[in-house]
Design a protein around this nucleic acid. Structure first.
Lengths: 208, 208
DNA sequence: ATCAAGTCTGGAACTTGTTCTAGATTAGCG
DNA sequence: CGCTAATCTAGAACAAGTTCCAGACTTGAT
C-alpha cells in the first residue's frame, strides 16, 4: 500500500523532465532561504532568482508564497515519514510511541528553526484557496501518527484523538516558534495530549 | 477581585480623553471592517480613514496590522468573558462545563465568521514582536476556561490539560475557518479534548 | 521541417503593509 | 498668556507579494 504517487501528483498533468527539474529547484531554493531567515526571508523574487527561473514561472508553479511553503512542507514531511518508517519508535504503548515520534519530529524542527517557522506559519495562515494542499499535509501527519500507533483500523474515537493530537502539535509549535513556550513546555503538552490515546483505546489491549 | 485595569492598560502611560476616544474609534473600525471581509478586508489605510485618523497615527497606536487585530481580539474576549460570567455554564462536571463554554464561544464566532477569521489568523500569524499581546489573549482564554471548570487552585496536571485545550481550540478554529472542518467536527474535537480534564482530576473518580 | 499551442523570460506595473517627513495642533507648564 | 515637547495630519516613498505583457523558446503533431 505504498502511496508515493498520489501525494506528489494529485491531479496535475504530467510534467516534462525539465519542468520537474524546475519544480525541484524552486522547492530547494525555498527551503534554503527559509532555513536562513524564516518566513520573511522567503521572498518570491529571491526564490525565483535562486532557482534560475522567471518570477512569472514561479507563480505558474506555485500560485502564492503560501502555496510554495506548504508544498515545501509536504516535501519535508515526506522525508520525515520515510526516516520514521526506517526507525520506528520503541515505546511499549501507543501513547508512548506517538509522543516519541512527535518529539523526534520536534527535534528535527529544532535543528532548522527558521525553516520550521516558515512552514508552520504558512500552514496556519493559509486560507481557503490552499485548502487542498493543507489537507494533504494533514493527511501526511495523520498517517505518521497512525503509523506510530501501529493501527490498521482505528476506531472513530481514536481518529478523534489523533485529530486533537494534531491540533495540539500545530498550536504548540506555534507557541514555541513565537517564543511564548519553551521546548520543555512543548514536550509536556505533547505528552499530556497523548494520554488521550489510552483513554480512547478500545476494550481490547492495543499491541501491534 | 475585578481585573479590568490590568488587562486593558498593561504599562502604557495614561491616555488623554481624546486619545482614548481615538483608540476606541480605531478598534471599532477594525472590528467593523473585519466583520465585512475578514483579515484581508482590514486594510490599514481604510481603518485609518474609517477611524478619522492619519495613517501615521494608526501606526503609533498599533505598530502593525497584527498588533491591531490582536488588540481587537483582546477587546472581544473581554466582552465574551463578561457575558460568560453573567451566564455560567450549567453542566455537572468540569469537562461538560468547559465544553459548553467553548461551544458557546464558538457559536458567537459563527455569528461573525469574518471577524473570527481576522482575529484568529492574526493570532496564529503573530511573530515574536507581538508575543506580549498574544500572551495576554492566552491568559484571558485560560481564565475563561478555569472559570468554567470552577477551580481556584488548579494542579499542574490540570493546567497542562487547559493548555492542550487551548491548543485544540485555536487549531480547530483554524481548520473550520479555512473550510477544512465542519462545525460538527469542531464540536467533536472540543468534546474529545475536554475528556482530558476528567483524566487529570486530582484523586477524585472520573466517570464520564 | 514546419506550424500552432503552450511555456518561459525579463521587466514593468499594481496593491497593500510599513516608514518617513514637514508642517499644523495640542498638552502641559511656567 | 507664551513656550516647548509631544502628538497629529497629509502625503510621499519604500518593500514585497502579485499580476500582466510582449517577445523568445519548447513541444507535439502533421
Amino acid at each position: 500500500m505504498t502511496a508515493e504517487a498520489k501525494a506528489a501528483t494529485p491531479a496535475t498533468p504530467p510534467l516534462t523532465e525539465r519542468q520537474e527539474a524546475r519544480r525541484r529547484r524552486i522547492l530547494h531554493a525555498s527551503a534554503q532561504l527559509a532555513s536562513r531567515g524564516g518566513f520573511d526571508a522567503v521572498q518570491m523574487r529571491e526564490v525565483a532568482e535562486a532557482a534560475g527561473v522567471a518570477l512569472g514561472t514561479l507563480y505558474r508553479y506555485f500560485p502564492s508564497k503560501i502555496h510554495l511553503l506548504v508544498a515545501t512542507m509536504q516535501d519535508q514531511l515526506q522525508h520525515l515519514h520515510g526516516t520514521l518508517r526506517k526507525h520506528p519508535p520503541s515505546g511499549a504503548g501507543s501513547a508512548e510511541r506517538v509522543a516519541e515520534t512527535l518529539m523526534r519530529a520536534f527535534r528535527a524542527l529544532q535543528r532548522e528553526p527558521h525553516l520550521a517557522d516558515a512552514m508552520v506559519r504558512a500552514l496556519t495562515f493559509a486560507d481557503r484557496s490552499v485548502s487542498p494542499e493543507v489537507d494533504t499535509v494533514s493527511r501526511q501527519t495523520t498517517a505518521i501518527i497512525l503509523d506510530a500507533m501501529g493501527l490498521e483500523h482505528p476506531t472513530p474515537e481514536q481518529l478523534s484523538a489523533v485529530r486533537v493530537i494534531e491540533h495540539t502539535w500545530h498550536s504548540a509549535l506555534i507557541t514555541w516558534l513565537s517564543g511564548r513556550a519553551s521546548i520543555a513546555q512543548v514536550k509536556i503538552d505533547i505528552e499530556t495530549v497523548c494520554k488521550l490515546i489510552d483513554l480512547t483505546a478500545p476494550t481490547k489491549s492495543q499491541r501491534p
